[in-house]
């Protein structure tokens, strides 16, 4: 049902255990790299692996709370909204993601 709302499909990309807590993995998609994050409360989030500042790989940043700090110049990005924390301004595209048991499903657009 979820899949039909988006003009794409839920695709399994990993198991939760493939990502360390407070860590991230990169998923290669037709539209570019997507970073999936796992927070300390075992929620998962997916953002383009491309910092709104100068394109740093967010997947390589330090995850804290529901945020990630970009490894290049320390912008802090909110994993929920994809927005940079004040005073920085910028936003990065989110990809719908959900957990089904241990499986991480990403809504990849066709």
């Amino acid at each position: 049902m979820d899949g039909s709302i988006l003009s794409g499909a839920w695709v399994e990309v990993a198991r939760l255990s493939d990502i360390p807590r407070l860590g991230s993995r990169v998923v290669g998609t037709a539209k570019g790299d997507v970073a999936i994050f796992r927070t300390s409360d075992d929620q998962v989030f997916a953002l383009d692996d491309h910092c709104p500042h100068k394109g740093g790989p967010l997947s390589q940043g330090i995850v804290h709370g529901h945020n990630v700090t970009c490894p290049l110049h320390n912008w802090v990005i909110d994993l929920n909204s994809g927005e940079a924390q004040a005073p920085d301004i910028g936003c990065i595209k989110r990809t719908p993601v959900r957990l089904e048991g241990d499986r991480i499903l990403l809504a990849l657009r066709a």
């Binding site: 407070l22 860590g23 100068k54 740093g56 790989p57 390589q60 940043g61 330090i62």
Partner: peptide
Amino acid sequence: DAQSRFVNERNHANIQKDG
């Protein structure tokens, strides 16, 4: 704790401006 290391110390290499 690898997740508490800055990227360079986690990946044992030095990240450059293009990733």
